[in-house]
């Protein structure tokens, strides 16, 4: 089947989509957007997190056909040209990235938290990131990065 939807502000058409295929597969394999990662395909790791109509979801658990006519924003859609999003900058600065596999999902999920909650507490951050697994960093530097990004965002307001 054909699926037409908006990805990072541009209309995209994917053809020959199998009806049981996930949104994640379409993004990575059909639209050439490999930013969202495929690690577990069962909602456990969060590395495939994307915005669907403004809400963060696991792209591996959305059937491609469910995205028809909807808006998707992936990690590729956060930066403006060469200017990284403040969350991405903070991750790089704080050393919150090691192998980087978990990073795109964490960045999208943290981006959403900071949009919704002005000054997130540590408990808010932990709760928001509870569905994103990282095997490398031990999470401390990820927490640092989210705190930094949130503080900068609050200062810029």
């Amino acid at each position: 089947m054909r699926v037409t939807f908006t990805v990072n502000g541009r209309e995209q058409v994917a053809d020959d989509v199998w009806e049981g295929e996930s949104l994640l597969y379409v993004l990575r394999e059909r639209l050439g957007l490999p930013g969202s990662k495929n690690a577990c395909e069962q909602g456990e790791c969060g590395s495939c997190t994307v915005y669907l109509d403004g809400t963060p979801v696991c792209a591996c658990l959305v059937a491609a056909g469910q995205a028809e006519g909807r808006r998707v924003r992936t990690v590729e859609g956060l930066a403006e040209g060469d200017r990284l999003d403040p969350v991405q900058e903070a991750f790089a600065e704080c050393g919150a990235v090691q192998c980087g596999f978990c990073t795109p999902g964490l960045v999208v999920q943290a981006h959403d938290l900071i949009e919704r909650v002005g000054k997130p507490s540590d408990a808010d951050i932990r709760e928001a990131l509870a569905g994103n697994l990282c095997r490398c960093t031990g999470y401390e530097k990820i927490l640092d990065a989210v705190r930094l990004a949130a503080a900068r965002k609050a200062a810029a307001r």
């Binding site: 909602g43 969060g46 997190t49 809400t55 963060p56 979801v57 696991c58 509870a130 569905g131 994103n132």
Partner: peptide, 9 residues
């Protein structure tokens, strides 16, 4: 239930 992403769907 699950995580924020799971609860969103």
């Amino acid at each position: 239930v699950g995580s924020p992403q799971i609860r969103n769907r």
